[in-house]
Simulated scan of single mutants.
Amino acid sequence: MPYDQQSPINLANPVVTVSAPGALSIHWGTGPLDGIVTKDSHGAKVVFPLDPSRYLSLDGHRFALRSFHFHHPSEHLLNGRQMPLELHIVHQDLSTCALAVLGVFFDLADTGHKKSKAFVEELGKKLAGIEPEAKGKDTIPPIIRVRPSDLLPSEGHAEYFRYEGSLTTEPFTETVSWVVLRHPVRRTQEELSGLVGAFHSEARGIQPLNRRFLLANFDPESAE
């Protein structure tokens, strides 16, 4: 079976469409969550205990919050530009096992952000000394407290790209609905370097769009 809906892609020349009200909504709760910090051959990630009440809704379908990780540099390109970092917040439909991934670019800024700086420092300490998971090795993974909404851009999540794609690591399964936010999170070089050090995971090369449609619910020609 040929793979013809692979990720990542270059986010360029989208079909502009008007999203139905509530097409994308995020329900992660308002308080911080405890995530389990793990490492494997693909890098580090933070995994959340399964809680169906914390989810992303996409066209009326619920996808439960499962985990997040970063890629350095970004996997998706924005009009041919590769960003310093890209966040993937992974959600799963508990009835079909299909995935919805919220992608967020990170870019440079002149000033810092107290919440993200504290998070980066804490995460670095949690990851220090943790070895990649090994079969038969009994380890107790550390816990980190994080509010996922703190990892979103200040402009919010109202404007985004959408397309149907795949996992960007093996087995590259094509069961992923991608939503990539238009606006990046802006952090200082120090903060970005801390995240790269904690989550370093190489980016997969750009894949052809083939016969798919890349959609955007905003006009790319409008001012940022």
Rank of each mutant, 00 (worst) to 15 (best):
P2D: 06
P2Y: 03
Y3M: 14
D4Q: 08
Q5L: 06
S7Q: 08
S7V: 01
N10L: 10
L11D: 04
A12E: 12
N13L: 15
V15R: 14
V15A: 10
V18Q: 10
A20P: 00
P21W: 11
G22W: 06
A23I: 02
H27Y: 11
W28K: 12
G29K: 07
G29E: 02
G29I: 13
L33H: 15
D34Q: 15
I36L: 02
V37N: 07
T38C: 02
S41R: 15
H42C: 07
P49V: 02
P49F: 05
L50C: 07
D51M: 05
S53T: 15
R54L: 13
Y55L: 03
Y55V: 01
S57L: 09
L58A: 01
D59T: 09
A64C: 15
L65C: 04
L65R: 04
R66S: 09
F68N: 12
H69A: 10
F70N: 09
H72D: 08
H72Y: 11
S74F: 06
E75H: 14
E75Y: 11
H76S: 02
L77E: 13
L77Q: 15
R81T: 02
Q82V: 11
Q82I: 11
P84R: 04
L87M: 14
V90W: 12
H91W: 07
S95N: 12
A98T: 13
A98W: 13
A98V: 06
L99D: 00
L99S: 05
V101Y: 08
V101W: 09
L102S: 00
G103S: 05
F106G: 00
F106A: 01
D107E: 10
L108M: 10
D110H: 14
D110W: 13
T111H: 13
T111P: 00
H113D: 14
K114D: 05
K117W: 00
E122P: 01
L123D: 00
L123I: 15
K126V: 08
K126E: 09
L127C: 03
A128M: 10
G129F: 14
I130E: 10
E131C: 09
P132N: 08
E133C: 03
A134V: 09
K135R: 12
K137M: 04
K137Y: 11
I140V: 13
P148E: 13
P148G: 12
S149D: 01
L152T: 01
S154W: 07
S154I: 13
E155L: 06
A158M: 06
E159S: 13
Y160S: 03
Y163P: 02
E164P: 00
G165R: 06
G165I: 02
G165Y: 02
S166P: 00
F172H: 10
E174H: 06
E174T: 09
V176L: 12
W178T: 06
V179L: 08
V179D: 05
V179M: 03
R182W: 06
R182F: 04
P184V: 05
V185Y: 02
V185E: 00
V185P: 02
V185C: 03
R186L: 14
S193T: 12
H200I: 14
S201G: 03
S201C: 09
E202M: 10
A203Y: 11
G205Y: 03
N210R: 15
R212T: 01
L214E: 07
L215R: 13
A216Y: 07
A216D: 05
N217E: 03
N217T: 01
P220V: 03
S222P: 00
